[in-house]
Amino acid sequence: MNHTTFLLVYVDHILVTSNNPSVIQQLISQLNKSFSLKDLGEIDYFLGIQVKHTTEGLHLSQTKYVHDLLCKAKMNNANGMNTPMISGQQLTMSGSGTVQDIQLYKSVVCALQYVTITRPEISFCVNRVCQYLKDPQEEHWQAVKRILRYLKNTIQYGLHLTYSSTLNLVQFCDADWASSPYDRRSTFGYCVYLGNNLVSWCSKKQHIVSRSSIEAEYRSLAGITAKITWLTALLSELRLILPRTPAVWCDNLSTVLLFENPILHARTKYIELDLYFVREKVIQKLIDVRHVPSSDQIADLFTKAIPSSRFSLLRSKLRVLDLSTLSLREDVRIIK
């Protein structure tokens, strides 16, 4: 029988898992011959990430980390918010006055980047405030404080990983054309599911200006195609065979149809390399690009600030859930 074992090492912290418990014990015994180890049993807390064992899987959160961050920013007694950013809000480069404590702004924003490990729904907002680290204005600090208020209101929320009967790789990608008001670069985002679980996500501003919405969407599609190629290779090394071609869901119908058209037009010459790259992967049946209605586009959460009702819906689809609503396992013991 083949055994699969994973070892994650960060300084003096080691996390090991395997599909065979005896292999874990053998590895720990071998390591203990050369190093002084303390076996803490099943994972409970690792690098600021709190792990709770539920009846369906694992719940990953950063409750303590967020609480410490709120205290650092003197926001621990602030009122909570239902969303991390006002719907449709546009931040500007200047005009509201430089913040009094620039180092605090930079420190809090960098800490928020780490929070996105278990809170993918704030990725877009954090990406936005990160763009003003060089010269943060009071308007940007107010945006940061709203993110903190949202985290305070949802401090028990985290990423819920559950058991899955299939290992289908499914992706959603989207782009918000010319969304940046001062350089007109587009924002693109994607999220990747392996079975029922969210395993990868991104919210980022494109490096160059797109001349049309289809250009912005196709660059987003090329980005997620590259990610799929890497993930497929990784899963192959782990001896995991995908049961079907990875599906990519895009809400721009013109983009979906473009790779099927062998004729290049003037409007597509700026994305010619991306076009051939995606088309090649489709021909090789390494990806399957499909159209999804905008109302069902989960990646919207990574490209723009959206209203509260829709935000809550998409957050749940990302499997970011409140720990208090889940059933915990009672047989987990941590041995020190």
Rank of each mutant, 00 (worst) to 15 (best):
M1V: 09
M1H: 13
H3C: 13
V11D: 01
V11W: 02
V11F: 01
D12P: 06
I14L: 05
T17Q: 07
S18F: 02
N19H: 12
N19M: 10
I28P: 05
S34K: 15
S36G: 10
L37A: 07
G41Q: 01
D44H: 14
G48P: 07
K52M: 00
L60C: 06
Q62L: 00
K64W: 05
D68K: 11
D68T: 10
C71A: 08
M81F: 14
N82T: 09
T83Y: 11
G88C: 14
Q89E: 15
G95T: 04
S96I: 09
L104Q: 15
Y114N: 08
T118P: 15
T118L: 02
P120W: 08
F124S: 08
Y132F: 15
Y132A: 07
Y132K: 08
L133V: 01
Q137L: 00
H140C: 05
Q142Y: 09
V144I: 12
V144E: 02
L148F: 06
L148M: 01
N153F: 04
G158T: 05
H160C: 06
T166Y: 04
L169N: 04
Q171R: 00
A175T: 01
D176H: 12
D176A: 10
T187Q: 14
F188W: 14
V192A: 05
Y193M: 09
G195R: 08
K205F: 12
I208L: 09
I208C: 14
V209T: 07
R211C: 10
S212Y: 03
S212L: 02
E215R: 02
Y218P: 07
Y218S: 01
T229G: 02
T229V: 12
L231Q: 03
A233G: 06
L235A: 09
R239E: 15
P246I: 04
W249K: 15
S254L: 08
S254A: 13
T255L: 08
V256F: 03
L264S: 15
H265M: 11
A266I: 09
T268P: 04
K269M: 09
K269H: 10
D274A: 05
Y276L: 07
V278G: 03
I283R: 13
L286D: 05
D288H: 15
D288C: 13
R290Q: 13
D300C: 06
L301Q: 09
S312Y: 08
L314D: 09
L314F: 05
K317Y: 02
L318A: 13
R319L: 13
V320D: 10
S324V: 01
S324K: 14
R329P: 03
R329A: 01
E330K: 14
D331T: 14
V332G: 08
R333H: 13
K336L: 11
